[in-house]
């Protein structure tokens, strides 16, 4: 808690913390856990596109995941992702008195997300996420 963003409880496949009933299948960058009735898929990947284009791509990917889940009879708790991009960067250089500015537009966006669903198997959610994000997981 000290840095306001500490991950207080690090889980792994060999996790043996007391009272812990989650089922782990570590397949980075997609992780599937179960909690009570819910199946939780966490994912991280990047999209090598400008922000606007990446936003549209991610929107489509998440809608695809939602459809696949419901097609299998699953119930969506929520499917969320956070998209970030540096967007524009600028280098300012001075050798005498005047500055020289060079702008660089980023073509790299990071995605972090979670899909929490019910009434399907963990393996099914994992398969859906891998299939949907396949083109971006290794980028």
């Amino acid at each position: 808690m000290g840095n306001n963003s500490a991950k207080l409880h690090e889980h792994s496949e060999k996790c043996d913390c007391e009272g812990h009933d989650e089922h782990h299948q570590q397949h980075n960058p997609i992780t599937i856990t179960t909690h009570d009735m819910s199946i939780v898929g966490s994912y991280k990947f990047s999209i090598e596109k400008p922000y606007q284009e990446a936003e549209a791509i991610l929107d489509g990917l998440l809608k695809h995941v939602a459809k696949e889940v419901t097609d299998l009879g699953g119930i969506i708790g929520h499917i969320k992702a956070f998209l970030t991009s540096e967007n524009k960067s600028c280098m300012i250089s001075i050798t005498e008195y005047e500055s020289n500015k060079r702008y660089i537009e980023s073509f790299h966006c990071n995605v972090e997300g979670v899909a929490i669903v019910f009434c399907i198997e963990p393996e099914q959610l994992e398969g859906i996420l891998i299939k949907a994000f396949r083109g971006y997981l290794e980028s």
Binding site: S5, H11, T31, T33, H35, S38, V40, G41, S42, Y43, K44, K80, A81, F82, E112, G113, V114, I116
Partner: peptide, 11 residues
């Protein structure tokens, strides 16, 4: 508090 391995809402 978020159940997933990544946090979204705090952002």
């Amino acid at each position: 508090n978020e159940i997933g391995e990544v946090s979204i809402d705090d952002k």
